[in-house]
Design a protein around this nucleic acid. Sequence first.
DNA 1: CATCCACCTTGCCACCATGGCAAGGTCAAG
DNA 2: CTTGACCTTGCCATGGTGGCAAGGTGGATG
Lengths: 154, 154
Amino acid sequence: MARSSETSMNIGEAARASGVSARMIRHYEQVGLIAPPARAASGYRSYGPQDVHTLHFIRRARDLGFPLDEIGRLLALWHDRNRPSAEVKALALRHVAELDAKAAALQAMSATLRRLAGHCHGDDRPDCPILDDLAQPADQALPRHGTSAGTAAR
Amino acid sequence: MARSSETSMNIGEAARASGVSARMIRHYEQVGLIAPPARAASGYRSYGPQDVHTLHFIRRARDLGFPLDEIGRLLALWHDRNRPSAEVKALALRHVAELDAKAAALQAMSATLRRLAGHCHGDDRPDCPILDDLAQPADQALPRHGTSAGTAAR
DNA sequence: CATCCACCTTGCCACCATGGCAAGGTCAAG
DNA sequence: CTTGACCTTGCCATGGTGGCAAGGTGGATG
C-alpha cells in the first residue's frame, strides 16, 4: 500500500485522494483539461499534492454540473491571480441559468405527465388518458399547459 | 412535391408529418422501436398514416422525456387492447419520479452555485468565493447545504 | 432525351462524460 | 519466483441526435 506521508502518488492514490476516478484523470489529461503529469521510470503517472488539489477542484465543479470546457475556464481563472471576480461570477451565473432552464424543462414534463396520470384510473381496465394523450393526432385535449416544455428540454 | 392526399409517403414526408426527423426514424427502425416499413421498388421506405401516427406517438413520448426503451413499452401497451391502465400509470409515475429526481439535482446545484455567486463581489478584484469554494481542500466553509446534490446528479 | 435538383440509400464519425474490458508491463510482499 | 494489486494503452458502449460522404432515384424542366 501507499505511505500516506509520500507527496508523490500513482494515479490510483490520486484518484482516491481527489474523488476523481483514475479513468477520468486520464481522460482529463487526454482532452487537455489538466497537464500531463511527470512519469516514473516505469511509465506510471506521478501526481503531487497540487495536482490532487486541481483534480479535487475539477471534481467539485463537476458536482455543480459544469461541463468540462467551462471547468477549463474556471481553472484558468483560478490560476490567474489578476482575474476579475466579475468574470467568474458571470460564468457561474450563466451556468445557473442553464441549470434552471434544464430543471424547468424537466419539471414541465413531470407536471404534464403527473397530471395525465392523475386522470388515469390505474386499474385493470384498458382505458388510459395517458396513452390517449400520447396518441393525440395533433394538439387537442389536455393541452400540454405551461410554458413550452419539451422543445427546450434535453 | 407530394400530393397531400396520398396515403403512402417517403421518409421525408413522414418526418414532416410526424415531427420526427428522417434521421431518427431510421434510427428507431434500427434499434427495433418501430417495424421496418414497406419499401418501394426503388428501395425507398414507404410510410402509411398508421406509421406516421406511431411516429407522432413516439415524438410526444420523447417530448415528455421518456427514454426509448420505455417508449417501446408504451407502444406495446398502446397496441395491447387488454392492457391494464395500472401498468401504464405505473410506468408514467416511475418516469415522473425520475424527472423529479433529476430536476431536484439540478436545482440543488443551481441553489448552491447561486448562493456562492451571491457572495461574490463580481468586480475587478480577484477575490472570489466561488473559486474559493471550488478550491476547498475538503469540505469546510459554505457547506453545500441541503440534501446531497452533486452525487445524485447526472 | 439530357439535365438538374431534391430526395432517398447506407455507413461512419462526433458529441459528453463515464464505464468496461482486454492484453500487457511493474512492483512489492510473501 | 510467484502472486496479486496496480499501472499502461486502446477500443467499444452508453443515449439521442446531428453531420458528412458517396452513390442511387424520381420527377420536372429545357
